[in-house]
Design a protein around this nucleic acid. Structure first.
Lengths: 207, 207
DNA sequence: TATATTTAGGTGGTCAGACCACCTATAATG
DNA sequence: CATTATAGGTGGTCTGACCACCTAAATATA
């Protein structure tokens, strides 16, 4: 059995050693890790313990496994862990009321952060999204803000916002307002940054 | 063996079923989950598979285990996953810059949202936090904003911010600025809401 | 009776060994 | 040479076994 330091569980030690292994061997995304049986022997732990560590890493999106092939470092960043976390956190009732407000705040900041980088082409693109007759209001909303997040270059907030969007769509109260987009586009055209804050805030007060 | 839907692994199914269990039984933080053997029987999976799911949940800080006692819903969010995630994933440079900015934005919004609810008592409390000689700047920062989040009553953003704080603390560059807190307290005293935005933005521009 | 002690059973932690389905490279076959 | 078996490795899963630990009930003690 692997040495158990300070009441640490074996799988936690395995976690650290795998991290070291990756570092020492300069493994890059897509590279293969030793097999479970090999790790078990190398790290002096049972295959079960190795697997407990690997499952945890998998949930965090750090590794991927292919039956019959092996275990590999993830080449893309999975949001699996965030989703699991979110699904547990958002379950709590008080949080749900918070969700709409938080999402609104993040959208406001995206609109502000994008301001400096918005070009005429972007404005056309945004108008096209909003006036597309074949899309639902919900989809318009998502495309619209996704574009803003992209321009603002705040990937992290975009991811968080995406999750909030997903969860808020499971709630009853849908709160999309077409005039918001139109007014925002006008602000971008007139280059009046300072009015963005008000645009969003007055809309939230109304509820 | 548990039914394997769409190539889904057993432990992933177990993950979902545990989530359902928590919801159906209205479990709250601190409450006890069924034992591993009981879950194995209930969910028609082996104890190993149950454990793989539990280990993953443990790493995410959703559950805690006590040998000899049982498995419990976490009463506090341990965030131990953050450390692991950070050490594996945060190598990517683009994300780092994004992290600091995103955290800064959320802190700014917390400061604004708290504005209306700040009382004289709160101001004293905030000053006490900042001038406490026995705490590190990092801890001052956290206590300070935790108080603001509490007053603003935006739990969800606070959770997200906590995650970001944990993440950013694994980075080299620490960016706490004591004068920010002092100026912010002054704003609360003078009740000049409109200057909060500038206070934060000018600080970010400097970097 | 009231308190201290033992004990039995439950719980998580870990391990070893066994199949299975799947993949791949090699060897045997046409 | 191309095709097809085949053998061995890999993750996925299960079973059953210990161990250390905790708790509460049963027992012994004051």
């Amino acid at each position: 059995m692997a040495v158990t330091l300070r009441n640490q569980k074996v799988y936690q030690g395995v976690l650290q050693q795998i991290r070291s292994y990756i570092e020492i061997h300069h493994l890059n995304p897509g590279d293969k890790l030793p097999s479970e049986r090999e790790l078990a022997e190398k790290l002096q732990a049972s295959r079960s313990s190795i697997r407990e560590a690997l499952r945890a890493l998998e949930l965090l999106g750090i590794i991927e496994t292919s039956p019959g092939e092996g275990t590999f470092l993830s080449s893309y960043r999975s949001l699996q862990s965030v989703e699991i976390l979110a699904s547990f956190i958002l379950r709590e009732k008080e949080i749900k009321g918070n969700l709409i407000l938080s999402k609104h705040i993040i959208e406001k900041e995206a609109a502000k952060a994008a301001f400096l980088h918005i070009t005429d082409t972007d404005i056309l693109k945004l108008e096209e999204i909003i006036h597309n007759p074949s899309s639902l209001l919900k989809d318009k909303h998502r495309s619209f803000f996704r574009h803003l997040f992209m321009k603002a270059d705040i990937i992290l907030l975009e991811r968080i916002w995406s999750l909030m969007e997903e969860f808020s769509s499971t709630l009853d109260e849908q709160v999309y307002d077409k005039s918001l987009y139109i007014e925002l586009i006008q602000i971008y055209e007139n280059k009046t940054y300072s009015t963005i804050e008000d645009l969003f805030m007055k809309r939230f007060k109304r509820k």
